[in-house]
C-alpha cells in the first residue's frame, strides 16, 4: 500500500516493522530454539540453572552423532528420491487433469472435478491399513515406489485444482492460433501452453515437494525398514531411544532438514507466489 504524508516513517513502523518483528518472533523463535539445542552440550541442556536461551558451551557433537550414528545421509537421499519422484508423478497427472478440467468442456467434467477434490476428505488414518494391503499385493513394500505411488493421493487434488485455475488464465486464442497453423492439440499444449504455465507448475511443484518432504505415517508403515527410512521416520526412530530423547541430534536433523530447503525456496519464492496468484484467483 502506498505511503503518503509527512509521518511516512511512523506509518512504516506501524504497518511494516512492528508486525514483521512480531511474525519473526512467533514464526522463527522455535527455529532459534532448535538451533540453540542442536549446539548445546547435554549437560548444559539438563542444567536448569543456566539461561536456556543462551549457549554457554558450543558443541558440534550432536551433528557428528547424527552423521556417524544414524544413516542420515541415506535418509536424506531416500527422502529426495521419494519426494522428487512423487512430485514429478503428481505434476504429470495434475497437468493433464488441470488442463482437461480447465480447458475442455465435456460431460462429467464437473463431477470428476468434485470427485478428485473429495479425495482430499479421506483421512490417512483410515487409509493406511487397507493401503498397506495394496502396497503388499503390488510387491512395493519397503521400495521407493511404495511412497512415490501413494503420495500422489494427497498431492494430486490440490495440484490439479491449482493448475486448473492457472490454465484458465492463459488465453485460449494462443493455442487456437497454433492449431489453425497446423499444430496438433498435444503439440500446442506442449509448446505453447505449458511454457506459459510454468509459474503455476512451479507453485504446484513446491507445494507437492513440501508435503512429500513432511510425510510421516505412510513412510513409517510402507517403507520404514532398514536403510529405506525417510528423514522424519529415520530421525525419530533412531534418536528417540525408548524413554530418552536425543534432543540435540533431533534438533540438528530438524535444522538440516529444513533450512537448506528454505534457502532453495528463497530463489523462486516470488515465482511460487505469482504462480499461486493466477491459479488461485481464477480457481
Amino acid at each position: 500500500m502506498a505511503m503518503v504524508g509527512s509521518n511516512r516513517m511512523q506509518n512504516r513502523w506501524i504497518q511494516l516493522y512492528i508486525p514483521l518483528i512480531f511474525f519473526l518472533l512467533f514464526l522463527i523463535f522455535p527455529f532459534y530454539w532448535m538451533l540453540i539445542v542442536s549446539l548445546k552440550p547435554d549437560a548444559d541442556l539438563l542444567n536448569t540453572k543456566l539461561n536456556p536461551f543462551l549457549l554457554y558451551h558450543v558443541t558440534i557433537g550432536h551433528y557428528t552423532y547424527l552423521f556417524t550414528n544414524t544413516n542420515f545421509v541415506r535418509y536424506v537421499w531416500n527422502t529426495m528420491v521419494v519426494t522428487v519422484g512423487s512430485t514429478v508423478l503428481s505434476l504429470f497427472c495434475s497437468i493433464l487433469i488441470g488442463y482437461a478440467l480447465g480447458r475442455f468442456r465435456f460431460r462429467g467434467g464437473g463431477f470428476l472435478g468434485s470427485a478428485i477434490f473429495l479425495a482430499y476428505l479421506v483421512p490417512p488414518t483410515l487409509l493406511f491399513i487397507p493401503l498397506s494391503q495394496v502396497v503388499t499385493k503390488l510387491d512395493l513394500y519397503n521400495k521407493y515406489w511404495a511412497l512415490i505411488l501413494t503420495y500422489p493421493t494427497f498431492l494430486i487434488p490440490f495440484a490439479s485444482w491449482l493448475l486448473m485455475g492457472y490454465f484458465r488464465t492463459i488465453a485460449r486464442d494462443l493455442e487456437d492460433a497454433a492449431m489453425v497453423d497446423g499444430a496438433s492439440r498435444l503439440q500446442a499444449m506442449r509448446t505453447i501452453v505449458l511454457p506459459l504455465a510454468m509459474p503455476g507448475v512451479l507453485s504446484a511443484g513446491i507445494f507437492c515437494f513440501t508435503l512429500g518432504w513432511n510425510e510421516f505415517l505412510y513412510a513409517l508403515v510402507f517403507m520404514g525398514s532398514g536403510n529405506m527410512k525417510t528423514v522424519p521416520v529415520g530421525v525419530v526412530t533412531d534418536l528417540i531411544r525408548a524413554d530418552v530423547y536425543f534432543w540435540g541430534s533431533l534438533m540438528a536433523a530438524g535444522i538440516l532438514g529444513s533450512v537448506p530447503v528454505a534457502i532453495a525456496y528463497s530463489f523462486f519464492v516470488d515465482n511460487y507466489i505469482s504462480g499461486l496468484t493466477a491459479g488461485a484467483t481464477k480457481g
Partner: peptide, 23 residues
Amino acid sequence: TTDYINWPDLQPRTTSAVQAGSG
C-alpha cells in the same frame, strides 16, 4: 536386518504388517 521403532508405533506397525500379510 534389524529394525527398531518407537514403542508407541510398534503396535500399529505390527497391525498393518499382519493385515497386509508382509513385513
